[in-house]
Simulated assay, not measured.
Amino acid sequence: MSTPVVELRAADLNEQGGVFCPSPKAGMKLWNSHPRVYLDVAHTGEARCPYCGTVYRLAAGEVVKSGH
């Protein structure tokens, strides 16, 4: 089974530079998933969910504003 990877645009990140998992962007239904966790994507360009292993990654060429 391969690890799901979700490519994000900078505009998909919240004001802190992250996303929450589970996420509709990953095709997940919130009612049957793991607890909601915050993943910081802005600082490293990607983050892996500790529950389901989904990787959230900035798409090539995406730039996060310096305010993040």
Rank of each mutant, 00 (worst) to 15 (best):
C52V: 08
C52H: 08
E15T: 13
Y51W: 14
S23A: 10
P35F: 11
Y38N: 08
P50N: 09
P35A: 09
G67R: 14
V19D: 02
V63C: 06
T54A: 07
W31F: 12
L30K: 11
L39A: 03
T54L: 05
C49R: 00
P24H: 10
G61T: 07
K29P: 04
P4A: 15
D12F: 04
Y38E: 09
A59M: 12
N14A: 12
A42M: 08
V37P: 00
A10C: 11
A47T: 03
Y38P: 01
G17H: 06
R48C: 05
A59R: 11
H68N: 14
Y51N: 10
P22K: 02
A26T: 08
A10T: 05
V6E: 01
S2P: 14
D40W: 01
P4M: 15
V64L: 08
R57W: 03
V6L: 08
A47K: 00
V63D: 03
E15Y: 12
R36K: 14
C21K: 01
D12A: 07
G27Q: 12
D40P: 02
P24S: 12
T54Y: 01
A60W: 03
A42R: 04
R9E: 05
D12P: 03
P50I: 08
F20Q: 09
E46I: 04
M1Y: 15
V55T: 06
E15K: 11
D40Y: 02
D40K: 02
E62H: 02
C49P: 01
R48V: 10
V55M: 06
E15V: 10
G61H: 07
G53F: 10
T54E: 03
P50H: 12
G17A: 11
G67T: 14
G53N: 09
H43K: 10
G53A: 11
V41E: 00
